[in-house]
């Protein structure tokens, strides 16, 4: 199963996961993380641990392009070919992740989730 890590500021990453579980029920392989109080090295180590070493790979979701979580996820996805990184996380993106991660291969999933995330923004 492809793992998901929502990595952002304060408690937002954990809150995203709680919101998903409040709609979809308990989830395996989906964790929220905060960057609070960590050095750059500490952030990278924590993210590596959260992503794990699963053969199916993982997607790291961040919220802010250019932020420290974004930089850390860029570093890890560069080092690990089976880690994809998407920024601009929202609930439609995460819902699609839960619904599609067991039937879609990692790279196609990341591409599809970008579209679902964008489709969630409208007037």
């Amino acid at each position: 199963m492809i793992h998901g890590v929502v990595y952002t500021h304060a408690d937002l990453g954990m809150a995203f996961c709680e919101a998903i579980e409040s709609m979809m029920g308990p989830q395996q392989g989906l964790v929220g993380m905060s960057n609070q109080g960590l050095s750059s090295e500490g952030m990278l180590a924590a993210l590596e641990e959260a992503v794990g070493a699963g053969a199916d790979g993982a997607i790291v979701f961040t919220a802010l392009h250019g932020g420290s979580c974004w930089q850390t996820a860029e570093r890890l996805s560069r080092q690990r070919p089976n880690v994809q990184h998407l920024t601009g996380v929202n609930l439609p993106m995460l819902l699609a992740f839960i619904n599609k991660r067991e039937s879609t291969e990692l790279e196609s999933l990341a591409e599809a989730l970008t579209e679902y995330g964008c489709q969630g923004i409208r007037t």
């Binding site: 500021h9 050095s39 750059s40 802010l64 250019g66 932020g67 420290s68 930089q71």
Partner: peptide, 9 residues
Amino acid sequence: DRLIHGQVT
């Protein structure tokens, strides 16, 4: 020690 990041930009 994070150099450029959200708090800064």
